[in-house]
Design a protein around this nucleic acid. Structure first.
Lengths: 205, 205
DNA sequence: GTTGTGACTATAACCCAAAATGGTCACTAG
DNA sequence: CTAGTGACCATTTTGGGTTATAGTCACAAC
């Protein structure tokens, strides 16, 4: 009834509370260092100087904490993508950068923060809200690019927008989805370029 | 020096030998029933009435046997695809059927012969020759379709053939590769159609 | 020579009790 | 009332002793 949750339904208690932030911060460090599985809720409790039980006043479950830091992690990718897209002039170039930056940032995360990446991959595999929201976010950015491209006469307008966007999203899926990206690391060098070319050809008016 | 192996480098001893065939047959049944892991080489030996040691006169390893039946399994998919493609009139339709049949047959295998499918997935994951050959084979069929489409003026001719084919193959990868297909089962309904549309748009002259 | 095997080893799989962990709840302190 | 916890339970996870398996080799029968 009086839940103070906005977009993250995995939270308990007050949404803005220093203890909640402390938990997330400690989780970020512990998960990054030791991984999600090797970190116990008691570890987090000890790190912030409270008891384990108190943590459950703020989070429904350990998974909810995992989702919080997963959201945080995926937000970094989104931020990098948004910046790259914003700095491009044409919709064509925006799409190229969207794809390229997305893959580059994800791969970088894979190699530099493997433990956090694994959470993201797990999240994608289990269909956690954090991963779904991420996918939706990328899709939304993509939609805007395609719409703009159509308005500017750069892209074709015959195919229904939803269909176009959905198909392109399917093409990007193996690289957007952290779970799938793992299996495509060997393709990561040229796939974005090659696929961008193909997609842009399909978008030609 | 005097190896009698043609395309499968995982064989020992004479390539055509009734015992080799017996091993493959027994392996097909056992792997299909109990799975690759739960089947021991001794099981296969018992099934054909020889000792385990004798099996190693024909196969380098258990994996080599696995590859043999994996090749067999993937050949069924290739056969189904070939037939579907042969029955299509235009290159456009050939491509649609290539993609659709490929996915449908793979999915069918997944649900009806899960144990064999798992071997194929494992094979793809480990980069076994059997899986690589399968990928090459699909790619080859794809190349022929695109080339024919170009010759008939149905597809554009500006992009280098290799590049076009490679990009399309990348698009199909999540559905060709049994390892990846597992994660895309929920997309299997409309992905082939949607992606075929996109690819064909990109191929438009 | 060819066909075939029992005996052997090093490694991987299995099993299961003991310990650790996620999660809850009644309760205390202020 | 709010902030916070120890004690508790049901499930997982783990350690490591034991068994099972992949693969080899010297040798036998013909």
């Amino acid at each position: 009834m009086n839940e103070i949750e906005s977009s993250t339904p995995q939270a308990r208690g007050p949404a803005d509370h220093s203890v909640r932030e402390q938990i997330v911060e400690a989780a970020g460090e512990h998960f990054s260092h030791y991984g999600y599985d090797k970190t116990t809720v008691s570890d987090l409790a000890k790190a912030i100087g409270f008891s384990k039980a108190y943590i459950y006043k703020f989070f429904d479950s350990k998974q909810a904490i995992g989702e919080a830091i997963c959201t945080q992690t995926l937000s970094q990718i989104v931020a990098a993508v948004d910046e790259a897209v914003a700095n491009a002039s044409t919709p064509t170039e925006k799409f190229r950068r969207l794809f390229k930056t997305l893959v580059a940032t994800s791969v970088s995360l894979f190699f530099n923060d493997r433990k956090l990446y694994d959470i993201a991959a797990h999240s994608a595999g289990e269909g956690w809200p954090s991963a779904l929201a991420y996918g939706q976010r990328i899709r939304q950015t993509l939609t805007e690019i395609v719409r703009e491209g159509r308005e500017m006469g750069e892209f074709e307008r015959k195919t229904p927008l939803d269909e176009t966007v959905h198909a392109i999203y399917l093409v990007m899926q193996p690289y957007v989805n952290p779970l799938l990206l793992q299996y495509n690391l060997d393709l990561v060098e040229d796939a974005p370029t090659q696929l961008s070319n193909l997609v842009l050809r399909s978008l030609a008016p």
